Amino acid sequence: MHVWRELSEVPPGFGPSAVTIGNFDGVHRGHLAVLDRTVQAAAAHGWRAVAITFAPHPLAVLHPERAPQPLSTVEHRLELLADTGLDAVLMLPFTAELAQWSPRRFVQEVMADALGAHEVVVGSDTRFGRRNAGDIGTLRELGSELGFSVDEVADRLAADGARRWSSTLARELIASGEVLEAADVLGRPHRVTGVVVHGDHRGRELGFPTANLTTDAIGAVPSDGVYAGWLVRPGENGEPGACSRHDTGERLPAAISVGTNPTFDGEERRVEAYVLGRTDLDLYGERVAVEFVERLRPTLRFDGIESLVDQMNADVARCREVLGVNTPA
Protein backbone atom coordinates (compact mmCIF):
# COMPACT_ATOMS: atom_id res chain seq x y z
CA MET A 1 0.00 0.00 0.00
CA HIS A 2 1.34 3.43 -0.96
CA VAL A 3 1.36 6.08 1.74
CA TRP A 4 1.50 9.74 0.68
CA ARG A 5 1.98 12.31 3.41
CA GLU A 6 1.59 15.38 1.18
CA LEU A 7 -0.76 16.08 -1.70
CA SER A 8 2.28 16.76 -3.87
CA GLU A 9 3.43 13.13 -3.41
CA VAL A 10 0.48 11.74 -5.38
CA PRO A 11 1.87 10.74 -8.80
CA PRO A 12 0.67 12.84 -11.74
CA GLY A 13 -2.14 11.17 -13.66
CA PHE A 14 -3.11 8.91 -10.77
CA GLY A 15 -6.48 7.25 -11.14
CA PRO A 16 -9.17 6.36 -11.89
CA SER A 17 -9.97 5.58 -8.27
CA ALA A 18 -12.61 4.86 -5.67
CA VAL A 19 -12.03 7.25 -2.77
CA THR A 20 -13.15 7.48 0.82
CA ILE A 21 -12.39 10.09 3.47
CA GLY A 22 -12.28 10.14 7.26
CA ASN A 23 -10.14 10.40 10.37
CA PHE A 24 -10.29 6.60 10.73
CA ASP A 25 -9.16 6.84 14.35
CA GLY A 26 -9.08 3.26 15.60
CA VAL A 27 -10.22 1.90 12.20
CA HIS A 28 -13.31 0.47 13.90
CA ARG A 29 -15.98 -1.74 12.36
CA GLY A 30 -17.99 1.22 11.14
CA HIS A 31 -14.92 2.45 9.28
CA LEU A 32 -14.31 -1.04 7.92
CA ALA A 33 -17.77 -1.13 6.33
CA VAL A 34 -16.92 2.03 4.37
CA LEU A 35 -13.38 0.91 3.55
CA ASP A 36 -14.54 -2.51 2.37
CA ARG A 37 -17.13 -0.90 0.09
CA THR A 38 -14.40 1.35 -1.34
CA VAL A 39 -12.12 -1.60 -2.07
CA GLN A 40 -15.00 -3.55 -3.64
CA ALA A 41 -15.95 -0.63 -5.89
CA ALA A 42 -12.38 -0.26 -7.07
CA ALA A 43 -12.02 -4.00 -7.75
CA ALA A 44 -15.28 -4.15 -9.68
CA HIS A 45 -14.10 -1.48 -12.15
CA GLY A 46 -10.36 -2.05 -12.22
CA TRP A 47 -9.72 1.21 -10.35
CA ARG A 48 -7.50 1.93 -7.37
CA ALA A 49 -8.85 2.16 -3.82
CA VAL A 50 -7.70 5.20 -1.84
CA ALA A 51 -8.45 6.55 1.64
CA ILE A 52 -7.91 10.18 2.56
CA THR A 53 -7.15 10.77 6.23
CA PHE A 54 -5.46 13.36 8.42
CA ALA A 55 -2.72 13.75 11.02
CA PRO A 56 -3.03 15.16 13.56
CA HIS A 57 -6.72 14.92 14.38
CA PRO A 58 -8.41 18.15 13.16
CA LEU A 59 -9.60 19.03 16.67
CA ALA A 60 -5.99 18.96 17.91
CA VAL A 61 -5.38 21.94 15.60
CA LEU A 62 -8.70 23.77 15.75
CA HIS A 63 -9.74 23.16 19.37
CA PRO A 64 -6.91 21.48 21.30
CA GLU A 65 -8.86 21.58 24.55
CA ARG A 66 -11.54 19.39 22.94
CA ALA A 67 -9.23 17.01 21.10
CA PRO A 68 -10.01 13.38 21.99
CA GLN A 69 -7.44 10.86 23.10
CA PRO A 70 -6.43 8.91 20.00
CA LEU A 71 -7.45 5.28 19.74
CA SER A 72 -4.36 4.33 17.78
CA THR A 73 -0.95 5.56 16.78
CA VAL A 74 -0.52 6.80 13.22
CA GLU A 75 1.62 3.74 12.43
CA HIS A 76 -1.00 1.34 13.77
CA ARG A 77 -3.72 3.16 11.85
CA LEU A 78 -1.77 2.72 8.62
CA GLU A 79 -1.23 -0.99 9.29
CA LEU A 80 -4.95 -1.49 9.90
CA LEU A 81 -5.81 0.48 6.77
CA ALA A 82 -3.39 -1.64 4.75
CA ASP A 83 -5.21 -4.76 5.93
CA THR A 84 -8.41 -3.63 4.17
CA GLY A 85 -6.79 -4.04 0.75
CA LEU A 86 -6.46 -0.34 -0.06
CA ASP A 87 -4.00 0.57 -2.77
CA ALA A 88 -3.04 3.88 -1.19
CA VAL A 89 -3.59 6.23 1.72
CA LEU A 90 -3.25 10.00 1.42
CA MET A 91 -2.49 11.19 4.96
CA LEU A 92 -2.79 14.94 4.73
CA PRO A 93 -1.12 17.08 7.40
CA PHE A 94 -4.04 18.89 9.02
CA THR A 95 -3.11 22.55 9.38
CA ALA A 96 -4.92 25.79 10.06
CA GLU A 97 -4.48 26.61 6.37
CA LEU A 98 -6.06 23.35 5.20
CA ALA A 99 -8.95 23.96 7.61
CA GLN A 100 -9.83 27.07 5.57
CA TRP A 101 -10.25 25.21 2.30
CA SER A 102 -13.81 25.37 1.03
CA PRO A 103 -15.59 22.06 0.36
CA ARG A 104 -15.39 22.78 -3.38
CA ARG A 105 -11.65 23.41 -3.31
CA PHE A 106 -11.01 20.24 -1.29
CA VAL A 107 -13.07 18.04 -3.59
CA GLN A 108 -11.69 19.63 -6.75
CA GLU A 109 -7.99 19.60 -5.84
CA VAL A 110 -7.78 16.41 -3.78
CA MET A 111 -10.47 14.01 -4.94
CA ALA A 112 -10.90 15.00 -8.57
CA ASP A 113 -7.59 16.47 -9.74
CA ALA A 114 -5.07 14.52 -7.65
CA LEU A 115 -6.79 11.17 -7.16
CA GLY A 116 -8.97 10.95 -10.26
CA ALA A 117 -12.02 9.91 -8.24
CA HIS A 118 -14.74 8.08 -10.18
CA GLU A 119 -16.64 7.08 -7.05
CA VAL A 120 -16.58 8.49 -3.52
CA VAL A 121 -17.70 6.19 -0.70
CA VAL A 122 -18.64 7.80 2.62
CA GLY A 123 -20.53 7.21 5.84
CA SER A 124 -23.73 9.04 6.67
CA ASP A 125 -22.06 11.58 8.96
CA THR A 126 -19.24 12.66 6.65
CA ARG A 127 -18.37 16.36 6.89
CA PHE A 128 -15.45 18.22 5.30
CA GLY A 129 -14.18 21.63 4.26
CA ARG A 130 -14.16 24.93 6.13
CA ARG A 131 -16.32 24.75 9.27
CA ASN A 132 -17.40 21.25 8.17
CA ALA A 133 -19.70 22.87 5.65
CA GLY A 134 -19.45 19.99 3.18
CA ASP A 135 -21.67 16.92 3.54
CA ILE A 136 -23.07 14.13 1.38
CA GLY A 137 -25.35 16.56 -0.44
CA THR A 138 -22.34 18.71 -1.28
CA LEU A 139 -20.49 15.67 -2.58
CA ARG A 140 -23.40 14.66 -4.81
CA GLU A 141 -23.65 18.15 -6.29
CA LEU A 142 -19.91 18.38 -6.95
CA GLY A 143 -19.82 14.79 -8.20
CA SER A 144 -22.37 15.49 -10.91
CA GLU A 145 -20.19 18.38 -12.03
CA LEU A 146 -16.77 16.73 -11.69
CA GLY A 147 -17.63 13.26 -12.90
CA PHE A 148 -17.85 10.97 -9.87
CA SER A 149 -20.69 9.15 -8.16
CA VAL A 150 -21.31 9.03 -4.40
CA ASP A 151 -22.04 5.84 -2.45
CA GLU A 152 -23.42 6.38 1.06
CA VAL A 153 -22.84 3.53 3.52
CA ALA A 154 -25.50 3.34 6.23
CA ASP A 155 -24.50 3.45 9.90
CA ARG A 156 -23.79 0.13 11.58
CA LEU A 157 -25.08 -0.53 15.10
CA ALA A 158 -23.14 -1.84 18.08
CA ALA A 159 -24.08 -5.06 19.90
CA ASP A 160 -26.75 -3.30 21.99
CA GLY A 161 -28.58 -2.39 18.79
CA ALA A 162 -29.04 1.19 19.97
CA ARG A 163 -25.75 2.96 19.25
CA ARG A 164 -23.79 3.13 16.04
CA TRP A 165 -20.20 2.01 15.81
CA SER A 166 -18.05 5.11 16.22
CA SER A 167 -14.77 6.32 17.67
CA THR A 168 -16.79 8.22 20.29
CA LEU A 169 -18.56 5.05 21.43
CA ALA A 170 -15.24 3.17 21.59
CA ARG A 171 -13.74 5.91 23.78
CA GLU A 172 -16.75 5.92 26.10
CA LEU A 173 -16.54 2.16 26.59
CA ILE A 174 -12.79 2.27 27.17
CA ALA A 175 -13.13 5.11 29.68
CA SER A 176 -15.57 3.02 31.70
CA GLY A 177 -13.36 -0.08 31.56
CA GLU A 178 -15.71 -1.97 29.23
CA VAL A 179 -12.88 -3.21 27.04
CA LEU A 180 -14.75 -6.31 25.87
CA GLU A 181 -17.52 -4.11 24.51
CA ALA A 182 -14.94 -1.72 23.02
CA ALA A 183 -13.35 -4.66 21.22
CA ASP A 184 -16.74 -5.38 19.62
CA VAL A 185 -16.74 -1.85 18.21
CA LEU A 186 -13.10 -1.92 17.14
CA GLY A 187 -13.06 -5.49 15.89
CA ARG A 188 -9.98 -6.24 18.06
CA PRO A 189 -8.64 -5.45 21.55
CA HIS A 190 -7.89 -1.80 22.26
CA ARG A 191 -4.22 -0.97 22.76
CA VAL A 192 -2.04 1.68 24.37
CA THR A 193 1.46 2.20 22.99
CA GLY A 194 4.46 3.70 24.76
CA VAL A 195 8.08 3.32 25.81
CA VAL A 196 8.93 1.14 28.82
CA VAL A 197 10.52 3.16 31.64
CA HIS A 198 11.71 2.44 35.16
CA GLY A 199 9.09 2.51 37.90
CA ASP A 200 9.38 1.90 41.62
CA HIS A 201 10.50 -1.74 41.09
CA ARG A 202 8.01 -2.91 43.73
CA GLY A 203 6.58 -5.46 41.33
CA ARG A 204 9.98 -7.09 40.89
CA GLU A 205 10.47 -7.20 44.64
CA LEU A 206 7.12 -8.99 44.96
CA GLY A 207 7.91 -11.45 42.16
CA PHE A 208 5.79 -9.71 39.53
CA PRO A 209 8.11 -7.43 37.49
CA THR A 210 6.10 -5.00 35.40
CA ALA A 211 6.74 -2.98 32.26
CA ASN A 212 5.73 0.62 33.03
CA LEU A 213 4.69 2.77 30.07
CA THR A 214 5.58 6.44 29.81
CA THR A 215 2.84 8.80 30.90
CA ASP A 216 2.66 10.17 27.34
CA ALA A 217 1.77 6.76 25.91
CA ILE A 218 -0.59 6.96 22.92
CA GLY A 219 -4.07 5.49 23.17
CA ALA A 220 -7.12 6.15 25.32
CA VAL A 221 -6.37 4.67 28.76
CA PRO A 222 -9.12 2.55 30.36
CA SER A 223 -10.49 3.26 33.82
CA ASP A 224 -8.44 2.16 36.82
CA GLY A 225 -8.38 -1.57 37.38
CA VAL A 226 -6.67 -4.85 36.54
CA TYR A 227 -7.05 -6.32 33.07
CA ALA A 228 -6.12 -9.46 31.20
CA GLY A 229 -4.37 -8.71 27.94
CA TRP A 230 -1.24 -8.89 25.86
CA LEU A 231 2.08 -7.09 25.70
CA VAL A 232 3.20 -6.66 22.10
CA ARG A 233 6.90 -6.11 21.33
CA PRO A 234 8.22 -4.29 18.25
CA GLY A 235 8.01 -5.88 14.83
CA GLU A 236 10.52 -5.52 12.02
CA ASN A 237 9.68 -1.84 11.49
CA GLY A 238 10.23 -0.96 15.14
CA GLU A 239 6.50 -0.48 15.79
CA PRO A 240 4.60 -3.01 17.92
CA GLY A 241 2.94 -5.31 15.40
CA ALA A 242 -0.75 -4.82 14.72
CA CYS A 243 -3.28 -7.65 15.07
CA SER A 244 -2.94 -8.13 11.35
CA ARG A 245 -0.97 -9.74 8.60
CA HIS A 246 1.76 -7.21 9.44
CA ASP A 247 2.11 -8.57 12.98
CA THR A 248 5.78 -9.52 13.18
CA GLY A 249 6.13 -8.58 16.83
CA GLU A 250 6.08 -10.91 19.82
CA ARG A 251 2.75 -11.07 21.70
CA LEU A 252 3.04 -12.08 25.35
CA PRO A 253 0.16 -12.80 27.78
CA ALA A 254 0.00 -10.18 30.52
CA ALA A 255 -1.83 -8.90 33.58
CA ILE A 256 -2.22 -5.15 33.14
CA SER A 257 -2.73 -2.64 35.93
CA VAL A 258 -4.06 0.88 35.44
CA GLY A 259 -4.06 3.24 38.40
CA THR A 260 -2.04 4.95 41.11
CA ASN A 261 -1.13 1.89 43.23
CA PRO A 262 -3.10 2.98 46.33
CA THR A 263 -1.62 0.26 48.56
CA PHE A 264 1.67 2.19 48.42
CA ASP A 265 0.01 5.63 48.39
CA GLY A 266 0.98 6.24 44.77
CA GLU A 267 -0.01 9.50 43.10
CA GLU A 268 0.99 9.05 39.45
CA ARG A 269 -1.50 7.18 37.26
CA ARG A 270 0.31 4.43 35.37
CA VAL A 271 -0.20 1.67 32.87
CA GLU A 272 1.98 -1.32 33.74
CA ALA A 273 1.99 -4.91 32.53
CA TYR A 274 3.31 -8.11 34.08
CA VAL A 275 4.12 -10.75 31.45
CA LEU A 276 2.80 -13.99 32.91
CA GLY A 277 5.51 -16.25 34.26
CA ARG A 278 8.38 -14.12 32.97
CA THR A 279 10.98 -12.54 35.22
CA ASP A 280 13.78 -12.53 32.64
CA LEU A 281 12.56 -9.79 30.29
CA ASP A 282 14.50 -6.55 29.87
CA LEU A 283 12.09 -4.21 28.12
CA TYR A 284 13.48 -0.85 29.24
CA GLY A 285 13.60 1.61 26.38
CA GLU A 286 11.47 -0.56 24.09
CA ARG A 287 8.36 0.84 22.44
CA VAL A 288 5.64 -1.70 23.21
CA ALA A 289 1.87 -1.92 23.14
CA VAL A 290 -0.47 -3.36 25.73
CA GLU A 291 -3.80 -4.73 24.55
CA PHE A 292 -6.79 -4.87 26.90
CA VAL A 293 -8.88 -8.03 26.58
CA GLU A 294 -11.04 -8.13 29.72
CA ARG A 295 -11.38 -6.19 32.96
CA LEU A 296 -10.84 -8.46 35.96
CA ARG A 297 -11.50 -6.14 38.90
CA PRO A 298 -11.29 -2.53 40.09
CA THR A 299 -8.19 -1.10 41.74
CA LEU A 300 -8.12 -1.96 45.43
CA ARG A 301 -6.18 -0.85 48.50
CA PHE A 302 -4.76 -3.80 50.48
CA ASP A 303 -3.94 -3.90 54.18
CA GLY A 304 -0.56 -5.53 53.68
CA ILE A 305 1.89 -7.18 51.30
CA GLU A 306 0.61 -10.70 51.93
CA SER A 307 -2.96 -9.93 50.92
CA LEU A 308 -1.71 -7.99 47.88
CA VAL A 309 0.44 -10.91 46.70
CA ASP A 310 -2.44 -13.35 47.22
CA GLN A 311 -4.66 -11.16 45.03
CA MET A 312 -1.94 -10.80 42.39
CA ASN A 313 -1.62 -14.59 42.20
CA ALA A 314 -5.39 -14.83 41.80
CA ASP A 315 -5.27 -12.16 39.08
CA VAL A 316 -2.59 -14.10 37.21
CA ALA A 317 -4.62 -17.32 37.42
CA ARG A 318 -7.70 -15.52 36.11
CA CYS A 319 -5.63 -13.95 33.30
CA ARG A 320 -4.55 -17.40 32.18
CA GLU A 321 -8.17 -18.51 32.03
CA VAL A 322 -9.30 -15.47 30.05
CA LEU A 323 -6.40 -15.64 27.58
CA GLY A 324 -6.37 -19.43 27.27
CA VAL A 325 -2.79 -19.69 28.49
CA ASN A 326 -1.76 -22.89 30.28
CA THR A 327 -0.42 -22.76 33.82
CA PRO A 328 3.25 -23.85 33.90
CA ALA A 329 3.79 -27.38 35.23
Rank of each mutant, 00 (worst) to 15 (best):
F128E: 05
D135A: 05
G134N: 02
D135W: 02
R131M: 13
S144L: 03
V122L: 04
G147E: 11
L157A: 02
E145K: 10
S149C: 09
L142W: 06
D151V: 14
F148T: 10
R140N: 09
G134A: 11
V153A: 00
F128P: 01
D135T: 06
S144G: 15
G129F: 01
V121A: 03
L157M: 13
R131E: 14
R127I: 03
S149Q: 14
R130D: 03
I136T: 12
L139K: 09
R131P: 06
L157Y: 15
S144R: 15
G147T: 11
D125N: 15
A154S: 14
E152F: 03
A133P: 00
L157K: 13
V122T: 12
G129W: 05
G143C: 08
D155H: 15
L139M: 12
L139Q: 06
D151Q: 12
N132G: 15
G123A: 08
R130C: 13
E145V: 15
E152P: 04
S124N: 08
D151R: 12
A158D: 11
T126G: 03
S124M: 14
D151E: 14
R156K: 15
R156I: 15
S149L: 09
S144Q: 14
V121L: 08
G143M: 09
G147V: 12
A133I: 10
V150F: 00
V122N: 02
D155R: 11
G143T: 02
S124R: 13
D155I: 08
S149H: 10
G143S: 11
V150G: 06
A133L: 10
S149W: 02
V153L: 01
D155M: 14
D135K: 06
G134S: 04
E141Y: 01
L139N: 12
L139R: 03
A154Q: 12
E152H: 04
T126D: 09
E141Q: 07
L142N: 00
G147K: 08
V150Y: 03
L142V: 00
G147R: 06
G147L: 07
F148H: 06
R140G: 09
A133N: 04
R156L: 13
I136L: 11
T138P: 01
E152S: 04
D125Q: 12
G137C: 09
F128M: 05
A158H: 12
E141M: 07
G137V: 14
E152C: 05
A158I: 05
E145L: 13
V122P: 00
A158C: 06
S124A: 15
F148C: 04
D125I: 03
G123T: 03
E152L: 01
A133G: 11
E141G: 06
D125V: 08
